[in-house]
Every structure is written in structure tokens, then in C-alpha cells.
Design a protein around this nucleic acid. Structure first.
Length: 402
DNA sequence: TCGGTCCCAAAGGTCGGGAA
DNA sequence: TTCCCGACCTTTGGGACCGA
């Protein structure tokens, strides 16, 4: 659940419909307005949530007027589709042709898709979706074709199967909407649950001994990356775009404002934080400060310089970091931890924090951007370990007849 | 050594249905 | 009206391979 908290204020009694306040993770409010259908009594929600209560109120007022004429009333979504309905294209495009329109025009909460998302989508399309549907006209894709294609996807690759189905369904959802070239047609990708499911959670963290060996083995100029990933929870992309002026050792803080990502062509580009919550300052434990200070003194001549640059002062590539001599692979091999990923250092820090007594909220703050469930996992893991240790202690006590 | 590409897995975040 | 939870959508990171 992404909403951090709910309003506990006494709900006002309304003559018509209801407004449900919600708090988004970034702290902003969202209001969900809905009322009962005058035809069926089922809930009728506004097509979107509102940022201001007054807008939700206004929407309900308008809807109330409409419901007064029960005979002509239609659900808002139906009205919206009718209003938006574009003239039907003379020739229905193929799925392959429409994919380009979809990727170029897709909007999520008003914003186009991120380049990195398009990159992933193109990969799924090329490998798993387009070989079957590229040349099929949109209106010729049937339920049977979609089902057959889904059945042919490798069931052992749960995540891939799920993502591909979701993407295909999403594309056809837009195509069959009022804006699409085949409005009103049923979406052939309608297997319930095919686009969902859970993946096993990764709980690998580094032990103290592994961390010690990794720090002793990794290149001297990358040692601080391991420290910051573990003790400050920084991601690889954030470390790569970290500049001298972002680090304030006197205040024990790092300002995370940017990160490096890759666009749909695999080219690196600098982007802002995913959310305002992600733009928080990060605290550096005092024990780590001297090592970071050494690193800055030795490797960062100008505050504008990257803290962890590649040769030539450009952004460090993941591949280089991993495969270089005394890079990540060598370091984790030396620690006999070849299943440990760099990103697992973040989880390591979160777990250590929980072991030190941090609450779920504090672990969440450390992780930034994470959902409460992620923080809960680290705290629970710690509690479960404490339970086991307590049991062991109890056995020792019994054996000793204390 | 480094950069590029492709594929895959995991996690973060929002919304809607419906029971209480 | 509130709250829970599943469904869905999006983003980020890791691994393998190849060629310069």
C-alpha cells in the first residue's frame, strides 16, 4: 500500500456521494470522489483523483445534476469516452505499427514514459510480443490468439511472462479506448491475474566479514562507494552522479538531487530524483566520514567534479565498475560472496539499522523512495533473527539449569 | 579496459473494488 | 465513509555477451 496514512477525521455527512481523502507517499493529498449509480447502485468513481477537495466537490455537484435525469444518465467514464471518440481510422494499423504510436504518445499521470521504461518495453516487445503480433491488424487480434500466445510464454519465467502480458494488454487497452483506432472493441488480453503475481523477495545482505574483505579488495578509489552504499543507502546511479559540492562532511550529509540512468538507446543521462521524498539529504555515519574525507582529498580536485568518475572524468559505467581489476566482481569473489549484488549493500545498511533498533519509519527514511513493506521486511527479518537468538539463549539457559 | 546491447528480475508507486 | 488489498503500471538494477 503506497498511501502512508489515512485521514482519521470524522467524515462529514454528505447529501450526495462521498469524498475520500488520501495521502500520497510524497505527502501531497489526493481526493477520490464517487457516488452510487442511480441505475444499479454500484459505485461510480471519478475518472481520476483530485489534488484539491474543492475540485472533488465540484465534480460531485455536476454529477448530482446529471443523476437528476435518471433516464439520460450515463457513467462518467462512458461519457468521457464518447466525448473523446476520434474518427475511426480508415485503415486499422497492425499491432507493430501501433506500438510506435503507443510508445510515443503514452502518458502516465500526464507525463510521457521515461526513456528507461521505453528501453525495457522495446526489449519485451522485440523478444516476446512482436514475433507473434507485429503484422496482425489490431482488430484481427482475437481472445484465442492472445490466450494461445500467453500459453506459449515460458511459465518458468514468471516475471517476464507477467510483464509481457501487462504490456500487451496495456497497448490494446489504449487501442480499444476512445482515443484508439478501434474504440469500443473488447480487449483480447483479458486473462485475469496474468499481469500480476509476486516474485520471491531477495533478502541477501552482506555479513560483516564479507564487507571487510570487499573493502580490503576493491580498488582504493571505489572503496568509498561501498561505504556509502552500505552506510548511507546510496544507489549506484546516485553515486555515479555525485559531485563534490553534494557532500557536506561538516554537517555529515549528502545531498541526493540527481542520478545517472540510461535512455532507450542505452546512453547515460542525468535525471532528477524520482520524487520529492527521494530528494532528501542523506546522513553519513560519523564512523564513515574520515574515509569519505580521504577520498575527496585524494580524488576530487574541484567541487564540480564527479566523486566517482570514470577515466576522463565522465560517468562511471556499471560494467566497468563490475569487471575492472579489483572491481566489484573481484572484491565479492575474494569475499566468497559471488551471489552478492552491489544493490544488496543498501539492504545490508537497512538491516543493520533495524538491528540497531530503528523503527520501520526510520528504516524507510534511510531507504528513501521505498514502500513501508520494504522497510517492514528488514525490521521483521531482524525481529525473526532476534527470536531465533532468544530461543538459542533459552536452550543454553535450560542446559545450564540456570 | 571500456562501451554498447539485450534480456531479465526486483522494487516502487497508484488506483479501484468492495467489505465493514 | 473508511480501510484493506489485489491489480496494474513504471522504474531501476543486474547479468551475459560482444566488439573495439
Amino acid at each position: 500500500m503506497a498511501y502512508r496514512s489515512r485521514s482519521h477525521s470524522v467524515p462529514e455527512k454528505r447529501a450526495f456521494g462521498s469524498i475520500e481523502p488520501r495521502v500520497r507517499k510524497d505527502g501531497s493529498k489526493a481526493y477520490r470522489a464517487r457516488y452510487r449509480s442511480p441505475h444499479t447502485g454500484a459505485f461510480v468513481s471519478a475518472p481520476r483523483t483530485f489534488s484539491a477537495r474543492i475540485d472533488a466537490e465540484a465534480w460531485l455537484v455536476e454529477e448530482k445534476k446529471r443523476t437528476e435525469d435518471v433516464a439520460t444518465w450515463r457513467p462518467p467514464k462512458v461519457r468521457l469516452e464518447e466525448a473523446l471518440r476520434a474518427p475511426v481510422a480508415e485503415e486499422v494499423p497492425t499491432f507493430g505499427e501501433y506500438v510506435e504510436v503507443y510508445l510515443a504518445n503514452r502518458r502516465v499521470r500526464g507525463c510521457p514514459l521515461e526513456s528507461s521504461t521505453i528501453r525495457v518495453h522495446r526489449s519485451y516487445l522485440k523478444t516476446h510480443i512482436l514475433p507473434t503480433f507485429a503484422k496482425v491488424p489490431l482488430d484481427a487480434i482475437t481472445l484465442q490468439m492472445a490466450d494461445k500466445w500467453y500459453d506459449a510464454l515460458d511459465p518458468t519465467k514468471i516475471k517476464t511472462r507477467r510483464e509481457c502480458y501487462s504490456l500487451a494488454r496495456s497497448i490494446m487497452k489504449v487501442a480499444t479506448s476512445a482515443r484508439g483506432p478501434i474504440p469500443g472493441r473488447p480487449n483480447p488480453f483479458d486473462i485475469r491475474g496474468a499481469g500480476s503475481g509476486t516474485s520471491p523477495k531477495r533478502d541477501r545482505i552482506a555479513s560483516g566479514e564479507e564487507l571487510k574483505i570487499i573493502l580490503a579488495t576493491i580498488r582504493e578509489d571505489w572503496r568509498a562507494m561501498v561505504l556509502l552504499a552500505t552506510w548511507a543507502g546510496l544507489r549506484f546511479g546516485e553515486l555515479c552522479e555525485l559531485r563534490g559540492y553534494d557532500v557536506d562532511l561538516d554537517a555529515g550529509k549528502i545531498r541526493i538531487r540527481r542520478a545517472v540512468s540510461k535512455d532507450e538507446h542505452g546512453k547515460p543521462y542525468v535525471k532528477g530524483p524520482k520524487s520529492e521524498a527521494g530528494a532528501d539529504d542523506v546522513r553519513i555515519p560519523k564512523s564513515v566520514v574520515p574515509a569519505i574525507r580521504d577520498h575527496l582529498d585524494t580524488h576530487v580536485a574541484d567541487p564540480d567534479d564527479l566523486v566517482f568518475p570514470s577515466t576522463g572524468g565522465v560517468h562511471l559505467d556499471q560494467k566497468t565498475f563490475k569487471t575492472a581489476i579489483a572491481g566489484w566482481y573481484d572484491a565479492r569473489d575474494a569475499a566468497k560472496a559471488d551471489d552478492l549484488r552491489f544493490h544488496d549493500l543498501r539492504a545490508t545498511g537497512a538491516t543493520l539499522l533495524a538491528q540497531a533498533g530503528a523503527t520501520e519509519a526510520e528504516v524507510m527514511m534511510f531507504l528513501r523512495d521505498s514502500t513501508p513493506s520494504a522497510a517492514q521486511r528488514y525490521v521483521r527479518a531482524t525481529q525473526s533473527r532476534m527470536d531465533k537468538l532468544t530461543d538459542r539463549l533459552s536452550k543454553v539457559a535450560k542446559a545450564s539449569k540456570w
